[in-house]
């Protein structure tokens, strides 16, 4: 299942690279992040064998993902206030992330749930605000053909289910460690659906859309 998830990331990354010139700036940034994400995910096994856990990798993924995704949102929003909030949030999040990584959840040994949960809350907030913006400035284009809709749905889906993933993971680890593989499958399924949603967004994205929605 892990390989399927990784393959789905690779497929949409290749798809994005093929269409790279036709993509708008937010989607170009997304493709860059997906490529990095793929390389980091692919090195997961090697990291675990070397350090006995993947806490370091999780920390890098968490901070990288946050910076890339909020920059994508920065390009998608029209409101100057929200854009400023995004820029400020990067600084604040970096400070919080390093405090957490150094003092609360040491980056060498602990999975950074504090930083991940904070980031996910912010993603949900940004996704809701972007949906609100889309309602304020609707385009005369079928919503199913709007890349921003698919991207935002993907983020909302992934971020909201992340809370569930983590709580299920904790629960299973504590009470049913023998069935932990079930929740891993669930996690990967979420990941694959997330990639499919992003893939639809990448396929639908084109520069003409930029003038209308961004």
């Amino acid at each position: 299942m892990g390989y399927v998830s990784l393959a789905s990331t690779l497929i949409i990354t290749i798809l994005g690279m093929v269409r790279f010139k036709k993509l708008t700036m937010p989607f170009k940034i997304l493709i860059v992040w997906l490529a990095i994400d793929f390389l980091l995910d692919a090195s997961n096994s090697w990291i675990i064998s070397k350090y006995k856990n993947n806490a370091r990798l999780s920390n890098v993924l968490c901070i990288g993902e946050y910076i890339f995704y909020v920059v994508i949102y920065y390009y998608l929003f029209r409101s100057k206030i929200i854009r400023r909030f995004i820029l400020v949030s990067i600084g604040l999040f970096l400070v919080f992330f390093f405090i957490n990584a150094l003092f609360l959840q040491p980056f060498t040994s602990v999975f950074p749930t504090n930083a991940i949960m904070t980031a996910e809350i912010l993603y949900v907030l940004l996704a809701i605000l972007l949906f609100k913006q889309m309602l304020q400035y609707p385009l005369q284009v079928n919503i199913m053909k709007q890349s921003v809709f698919w991207f935002n749905t993907a983020i909302l889906f992934f971020s909201t289910t992340m809370f569930l993933n983590l709580s299920l993971m904790n629960y299973y680890r504590k009470y049913h460690p023998e069935n932990i593989s079930l929740i891993v499958i669930f996690w990967y399924s979420i990941d694959i659906i997330f990639n499919i949603l992003l893939g639809i967004g990448i396929l639908n994205n084109k520069k003409e859309e930029l003038t209308a929605n961004v």
């Binding site: 309602l135 385009l139 919503i143 909201t160 709580s167 299920l168």
Partner: peptide
Amino acid sequence: VVIAASLLLALLVCSVVYFVVLYRNKQ
């Protein structure tokens, strides 16, 4: 947890469908 998960996913799907309907009306 399973009930909560199902409810969460159902709520998510309903929210997206509701958004699509709202968006089309606005269009």
